[in-house]
């Protein structure tokens, strides 16, 4: 019998597989087709203080081995998430959930994180300082060590649950930003958000996505994500949730060997709604194949010397 459980800042997950924010809604669409309690946890749709429509369509484009999205943080706002979505979510998911919070100002991060922190059923708070699809917010907090630290410090002051800062890959030195978050008190790091990209429609001679740019995700970004998790693992001593293009149980193992304590699965859920479940189910056999008894034993296992 292999042991697939992992721990994130004192929170034990039966397995490391967490559907990523923005690819799993608040869980209901997936709960209609399988029992989502097989998952380690899931990260709900990025939530802001005010309700948001997001960007005008088209918001989606195809990419080689991946996709672009520019949804732009569509969400019902923190009030509705707390009063409507969380109670509904708890009926279909009985484990602690990852609360993904976004913002356009330090005040907004503080208010939303402080409120969601008090919610029963929230296991940890994942602070998105890396959304590439909104202006004057989101990613701009995650692209310098100073502003990343500022958000971290402010959020940590109003929360009791573990705080994981979700970082952007659209930076020159990911390790410096991760270190700044750690120094400011972050309990962990989530990475990577999507890579900024675009497509152009030859017929219209115009960008496919109305927002012009979108975030690239899917298997295309997996090697980049893996490299960044590797670099951050070398830079910090706090746990890492690794994500970016994970599609198979083997990808999970690679990500953990690079240094991730748990993983998030994103785009894969959108093309195969059963993807996360399949990965959970495939993990034990892959562990046996590589003679792994306890999954936690392999975290960072590819770093030698």
């Amino acid at each position: 019998m292999v042991n697939t459980s992992v721990t994130l800042s004192g929170l034990t997950l039966s397995n490391p597989v967490i559907p990523a924010s923005g690819t799993f809604g608040y869980g209901y669409e997936f709960a209609e087709i399988y029992d989502i309690n097989c998952l380690g946890s899931f990260s709900f749709k990025g939530t802001t203080r005010e309700p948001r429509f997001g960007n005008e369509p088209p918001r989606i484009a195809e990419a080689p081995s991946g996709m672009l999205n520019a949804v732009g943080l569509q969400n019902p706002g923190i009030d509705k998430v707390i009063s409507e979505e969380l109670p509904k979510l708890r009926k279909v998911f009985h484990k602690p959930v990852v609360a993904n919070i976004s913002g356009f100002s330090i005040d907004e991060y503080v208010e939303c994180c402080g409120r969601i922190d008090k919610e029963e059923g929230v296991g940890l708070v994942e602070v998105n300082i890396s959304c590439p699809n909104v202006h004057n917010g989101g990613m701009s907090f995650g692209t310098s060590p100073e502003s990343a630290a500022q958000v971290t410090r402010a959020v940590k002051a109003v929360t009791r649950k573990p705080v994981y800062m979700k970082l952007s890959p659209n930076v020159t030195d990911i390790a410096a930003i991760a270190r700044a978050c750690e120094d400011a008190g972050a309990d962990g790091i989530s990475l990577i958000n999507t890579l900024m990209g675009m497509r152009i429609d030859l017929k219209r001679r115009a960008p496919v996505i109305r927002n012009v740019t979108g975030g690239l995700s899917g298997p295309a970004v997996f090697p980049v994500a893996l490299r960044m998790v590797w670099q951050v693992y070398e830079a910090v001593n706090i746990p890492i949730i690794g994500m970016g293009g994970i599609t198979t149980a083997e990808d999970v193992m690679e990500m953990m060997l690079a240094g991730a304590a748990a993983v998030e699965v994103g785009a894969a859920n959108l093309v195969d709604p059963f993807a996360s479940k399949k990965i959970v189910e495939a993990l034990p056999a892959v562990m046996e194949k590589y003679h792994i008894e306890n999954l936690t034993d392999i975290i960072g296992g590819a770093h030698h010397g």
Binding site: I60, V71, L270
Partner: peptide
């Protein structure tokens, strides 16, 4: 509309 998932998860096609 251009869709991501087609089953309501990604908010790619909201109007």
């Amino acid at each position: 509309e251009r869709m991501g998932c087609g089953f309501g998860a990604c908010m790619g096609c909201t109007c």
